[in-house]
Design a protein around this nucleic acid. Structure first.
Lengths: 349, 349
DNA sequence: ATCCTCCGTGTAATCGATTCCACAAGGAGG
DNA sequence: CCTCCTTGTGGAATCGATTACACGGAGGAT
C-alpha cells in the first residue's frame, strides 16, 4: 500500500509538504496542492490511520461497551450512537459484554489498548476493576442507560419513574391489585431503580410489594421464564407481571403460554423497554418506551465534550407509557371491579 | 500513560529486552523476565496497540460490514462473528451499512484506513466501487450471507432451496395455490435467489409466479407493508405471502392487521430468517431458519485462513423450515380442498 | 592457553505519519 | 542597496513499539 513517501516522490515534493497539503494547512502553494492531489489520485493513496494515531495520540474512535447486543433496546442504542458519532467524524467500536463482568472488562482493556479517544459504557455490574481503573486513569468516559454510583462520570439515561407511575395507575384502573415484578440484577442501577419506582408507585395506591412478588432476573429471556413460573406456582399468583426489560418479558410470555394460560385473561403482562415486535406479539405488549435515539445522541455529544476537555453534562430524559392490550381492556368484564379482589384463577393447569 | 521506555527504566533494562520479555521471546533470562513483570505491575503498563500495529503491520482486528444491524438475523450473525473472532484473538469492528451502498463504502474505506487485517462483508448491492477496489487490492476478504458474483472471494452462506421447497410443499398441502413473494433488492444475491428458489419450487407443483405476485422490497419493514398492501388491492389477492426476510414479514403483518384481516384465516404468511420473536407473534410465524451461529463461525475461520495466506474455503450450510401457525393448520376446514380455489375473501375491508 | 559457541543483552533502524525549526526566495520599506 | 518580513518548502525529530545486528562474557573443546 502506498505511503506518504511514495506520494512525495510521485509529486516531487517532501513528505512534509504532502502532509500539509493533505491536512489543509494554509501555507501550501496551489501548485503544490494540485501536484499532491494528482499523485494521490494516481497512486490511490489513503493515509494510514494507525501511523497518524501514533503521532497525534488521537484515534477518532469511540468505544461502546454494551450489556447485550441481542437485546433490541441496546441494538437501537448502538445504532444511534454510531450515527451521531459518524456525524461528528468518529468511528465506533462496539464491545458486547453479554451481561458478563469478565467480558465487559475484556472489552474495556482491549479498547484502551487500542487507544480509543473515549468510552461509552452501560455497566453490567457495580464496577469491574478494569472499568474503575479506566475511570480513575482519566479516560474520557460517559455512562449510558446504567451507571455506577460514586464514579465521577456523566450519565445519560432516561427516568422511568413517571412512566412506571402511569403504568401502575393504568393497572390499578383495570382492577389489578396483585402486581409482581421481574427485576434486573441488583448490581445494575436499572435493575434496582425499576423495582424502587414500582414499589413507590404501588405505595401511592396503598399496595405492597411482597418479596414473593419480586422475581430475580438477569435481563435475559430465560430468567424471565423462570421467575414467571415461580409466580404461577404461588398459592396466590399475581394478576400482573411487570418485566424490567423486554427479553424477560419474552421469557414471561413463554412461561405463561407453556402453562396454557392466556394474556391478559389469565395474567397481565407489561415490560420496560418498548420494541417494534411488541406491536405484533400475542397480545401486543404494554410497555414503557425510552427515547433511545435521543439517549444515544446525547451520550455521544457528552462524550465528545469530555474528549475536548470540557465538562460534558449528564442528561436524563423521560420515558413514557405505551398502552397496548397485554394488561386487559378498560371496562372489560371481570377486571373492572375496584374493591373486590380479582376473580379466582387457576394457579397451574 | 506509561510506555515501554518507562518500563525499561523501571526495570533497569533496555526496551529491547522488555519487548522480548513481553512477547515471550526465549532468549530472556528468568531474572530479567521477573524484573519486567514487576515493573509492568508497578507502572500499570499496557502495550500501545497502535504503535505495535504500525511496526508489525497487523492490527489483530477484523472488519464486519453488515447490511442492517437492526435486523435480528444480522445482530445474531454479528454476535457469533465476534465470539469466534475473540476466541481466535481478534477484535471485531462492526460497520452498519443500513442497506445503503454509500454507507457501506464509507465503512469499508474507514476500516481499510484503520488497517484491519481482514474484512467480512454481506454486500448491500452488486458491488460498490470501494468494495471492489478492496477486493482487487488483495485485502483478505470473505463474503457472508450475500455475495457478489464474479469477485474471487470465499462465500459463507446458507442454501435455502431445499427449505423453500419444503415450505411450498407445506403450503400446497394446506391447499394454497396463489402464492406471492416479497422479494429483496435485485442487487443482492439473497434478494434474487429466494425468488428463484420460490419460483422453482412452485414450478414443481405446476404453479406459476406471476409478476403481480412478486412484490419489490428492500429488506426493511416498511417495504413489506407497501408490497402487502399492493397484494391485497389486487382483484385476486394471493392466499399466501412469503417475505424474503423477517423485517418485511413484520411489515406484512402490519399491513394485514391494518385492514382488519387475520393471519392465517384471511391470508397466510411465511418468512425467510427465523427469529425468537416469531414464536410470540400473533400468530406464530412459519419461517425458514438459517444456522446463523455456524455461519458466523465459519466466516471468521475462513477469513483467518485467508489472513494466514491460505485459501479459506467457501461454505454453504442448509437452512431448514420451521412450521408454526401463520400458514394455517393441516386439515383445517376451508383450506383442505385441493382442486377448488380457496374460499372467497375480502380484498379490502 | 586459545579459539569457538552460545546466551543474554543493548544499540539503532524501522513502520508512516505530524510538526518544529531552519532556510531560500522575493517583495516591501528604509 | 541593504535589511526585514512573509511565504513556501525541506530536514529531521518524534510517537511506541519490534527486530536485525553487534557485542561481551561464560564455558567447552582442542
Amino acid at each position: 500500500m502506498a505511503s506518504i513517501k511514495d506520494v512525495a516522490v510521485e509529486a516531487g515534493l517532501s513528505v512534509a509538504t504532502v502532509s500539509r497539503a493533505l491536512n489543509g494547512h494554509p501555507s501550501v502553494s496551489p501548485a503544490a496542492r494540485r501536484r499532491v492531489e494528482a499523485a494521490v489520485e494516481t497512486l490511490g493513496y489513503r493515509p494510514n490511520a494507525v501511523a497518524r494515531s501514533l503521532r497525534t495520540d488521537r484515534t477518532r474512535t469511540l468505544g461502546l461497551v454494551i450489556s447485550d447486543v441481542m437485546n433490541p433496546y441496546f441494538t437501537e442504542l448502538a445504532r444511534s450512537v454510531e450515527e451521531e458519532a459518524r456525524a461528528l467524524g468518529y468511528s465506533v467500536v462496539i464491545g458486547n459484554a453479554d451481561e458478563r463482568p469478565d467480558l465487559q472488562d475484556h472489552h474495556v482493556t482491549t479498547l484502551l489498548d487500542r487507544r480509543i479517544d473515549g468510552l461509552l459504557v452501560s455497566p453490567t455490574d457495580g464496577g469491574s476493576p478494569g472499568m474503575l481503573a479506566a475511570a480513575r486513569a482519566g479516560t474520557p468516559m460517559v455512562f449510558v442507560d446504567r451507571w455506577i454510583p460514586g464514579v465521577d462520570v456523566p450519565v445519560v439515561r432516561s427516568d422511568g419513574r413517571a412512566a412506571v407511575r402511569d403504568l401502575v395507575a393504568h393497572l390499578h384502573g383495570l382492577g389489578h391489585r396483585r402486581l409482581a415484578i421481574i427485576a434486573g440484577p441488583a448490581a445494575t442501577t436499572t435493575g434496582r431503580e425499576r423495582v424502587d419506582a414500582f414499589r413507590e408507585a404501588l405505595g401511592a395506591y396503598g399496595l405492597a410489594l411482597p418479596g414473593t412478588y419480586i422475581g430475580q432476573g438477569d435481563f435475559q429471556a430465560e430468567s424471565g421464564r423462570r421467575a414467571t413460573e415461580r409466580f404461577l406456582d404461588l398459592d396466590e399468583p399475581p394478576e400482573v407481571v411487570f418485566a424490567a426489560d423486554n427479553l424477560m418479558a419474552l421469557g414471561a410470555l413463554d412461561a405463561v403460554r407453556a402453562r396454557g394460560l392466556r394474556v391478559p385473561e389469565d395474567i397481565a403482562l407489561a415490560a420496560f423497554d418498548d420494541i417494534p415486535w411488541f406491536v405484533h406479539t400475542d397480545p401486543p405488549v404494554t410497555a414503557i418506551a425510552q427515547p433511545t435515539r435521543d439517549l444515544g445522541r446525547a451520550a455521544v455529544r457528552a462524550l465528545v465534550e469530555r474528549i475536548a476537555g470540557r465538562a460534558g453534562e449528564s442528561v436524563t430524559l423521560p420515558a413514557r407509557l405505551v398502552v397496548r392490550r397485554s394488561c386487559g381492556k378498560p371496562g372489560k368484564p371481570g377486571n373492572s371491579s375496584i374493591e373486590s379482589p380479582s376473580p379466582v384463577r387457576r394457579s397451574t393447569p
